[in-house]
Amino acid sequence: MKNLFEHGKPRYGRFKVVPQCIDIHDFHYVSPFKRHITGLEKNLRFKSFQFISLNNSQYMVGLAVVDLGWVGHGFFYCHDLQTGKVLEHSFLQPFGKHTHVCNHQVGSSSFKKSSFLIEIKKTATGRLVKVRRGKHLLLDATIGIKDTEPLVLCSPTGASGWTYTHKQTALSVTGSLYFNQQAIDLKNQQFVAALDDTCGILRPETAWHWLSLSGMDRTGQRLGINLASGVNETFVSENSLWLNGKIFELPAVLFEQQAKNQWRIYSADGGIELSIQTHWRRHEAKNFGVVASQFNQWVSTISGTITCQDSRVDIDAQMGLLEQHYAKW
């Protein structure tokens, strides 16, 4: 697919390939009252971000470049589940200063604030990721995507908006993580990675839950899970399972908090039954009236079962991420 848009409108559905081009200027934005929305107003309503996670059984790393129009945001964290140690950096830039998110298939994204820098280079075969703070390199990683089918979809959102997402899980990764005064070899320590590229004209007030898992099942297959509610629920769903790089669509799920550190995620047909124990949380709460965000992302341990195409996948204490997000933007 060359372009996500055709005759000024987004193509809707789940796709086999990533669009070569996503340019907001190709979208003809019209309000419910048939007013054409252009220029600065259109750009401010367009939201885009790239999130990447890397993990093994001990460490969880998360980083993102976010352009919300009104503000740019970049963050990086590394959590050691065994010791509880955390390294975290998070910065904002007004009106997306020094913030660039590339929504094309190939290109570069970056966020810079003072001495903190995130660089993500998208290539045909993967991602090249670097994170720096001053003279210190925090992450230098190469993520491979060629042997894993992508989740690519676009769905209608609100009265005249749309949401596009490209996600992949359980990806191979090489390079080094620099944490707690040591260089950690990502390949030797069996790290896997997950990608989330999302953009669109999102609801001005929205909320969602999200779960992402990258690991191995009991039989040694590469296992990936992506589950969400509150987003991409019109016409298509982003709920998916990956086994050794092959993707399978999953049904709708409910996220239910049962105790402070315990959640349940399940489907109506009983095919998905997951228990989530949460640990360290990345949290932000900002309320500026017109713009607000309540963000929770927990490093989590995930157990349970998923039945897909008459086959049962058992998940035994796998590391993942659980997210709860409310936004007004």
Rank of each mutant, 00 (worst) to 15 (best):
residue 8 G to S: 05
residue 279 H to T: 14
residue 300 S to L: 03
residue 219 T to H: 14
residue 275 S to A: 14
residue 110 S to C: 11
residue 222 R to T: 10
residue 156 P to T: 00
residue 235 F to L: 14
residue 249 E to A: 11
residue 229 S to F: 01
residue 147 D to L: 13
residue 50 Q to E: 15
residue 132 R to G: 07
residue 268 A to S: 15
residue 275 S to V: 13
residue 91 F to D: 09
residue 188 N to H: 13
residue 133 R to K: 14
residue 189 Q to F: 09
residue 59 Y to A: 01
residue 177 L to C: 02
residue 188 N to M: 12
residue 54 L to R: 00
residue 29 Y to W: 14
residue 299 V to W: 05
residue 6 E to I: 14
residue 287 N to T: 04
residue 26 D to A: 09
residue 296 N to Y: 11
residue 197 D to K: 02
residue 40 L to N: 14
residue 158 G to A: 06
residue 163 T to F: 07
residue 212 S to K: 06
residue 2 K to M: 06
residue 155 S to I: 03
residue 123 T to D: 04
residue 303 S to Q: 03
residue 305 T to F: 10
residue 328 K to H: 13
residue 158 G to M: 05
residue 313 V to L: 00
residue 168 Q to L: 11
residue 302 I to A: 02
residue 196 D to Y: 02
residue 94 P to Q: 02
residue 53 S to A: 05
residue 317 A to W: 05
residue 85 K to R: 11
residue 326 Y to S: 09
residue 156 P to V: 00
residue 1 M to N: 10
residue 239 N to S: 04
residue 283 H to K: 02
residue 326 Y to A: 12
residue 69 G to F: 03
residue 308 C to K: 00
residue 160 S to K: 06
residue 73 H to T: 06
residue 101 V to Q: 01
residue 291 V to S: 08
residue 309 Q to R: 06
residue 251 P to D: 09
residue 185 D to A: 12
residue 164 Y to W: 06
residue 189 Q to S: 15
residue 286 K to H: 13
residue 240 S to A: 15
residue 59 Y to V: 01
residue 1 M to A: 11
residue 265 I to C: 10
residue 296 N to P: 04
residue 248 F to D: 05
residue 226 N to E: 09
residue 225 I to W: 00
residue 283 H to L: 04
residue 95 F to C: 12
residue 23 D to Y: 08
residue 6 E to N: 11
residue 234 T to R: 11
residue 219 T to K: 13
residue 151 L to T: 03
residue 247 I to P: 02
residue 143 I to H: 07
residue 190 Q to K: 10
residue 305 T to R: 13
residue 81 L to Q: 11
residue 75 F to P: 06
residue 268 A to R: 05
residue 62 G to E: 05
residue 24 I to D: 15
residue 101 V to T: 04
residue 93 Q to I: 03
residue 286 K to D: 15
residue 19 P to M: 02
residue 51 F to W: 14
residue 82 Q to H: 12
residue 312 R to V: 14
residue 60 M to G: 09
residue 69 G to K: 02
residue 145 I to A: 04
residue 202 L to R: 04
residue 201 I to C: 03
residue 8 G to F: 01
residue 201 I to S: 00
residue 243 L to N: 07
residue 148 T to E: 01
residue 147 D to R: 15
residue 185 D to S: 12
residue 240 S to R: 06
residue 143 I to E: 00
residue 31 S to C: 10
residue 177 L to V: 02
residue 230 G to D: 06
residue 127 R to E: 06
residue 79 H to G: 03
residue 60 M to A: 12
residue 69 G to S: 09
residue 50 Q to I: 11
residue 242 W to F: 08
residue 327 A to D: 02
residue 86 V to D: 07
residue 139 L to K: 06
residue 327 A to G: 01
residue 259 A to F: 00
residue 150 P to Y: 01
residue 23 D to V: 08
residue 321 L to A: 11
residue 55 N to H: 08
residue 253 V to M: 01
residue 322 L to D: 05
residue 15 F to R: 13
residue 271 G to Q: 09
residue 137 L to M: 07
residue 231 V to N: 09
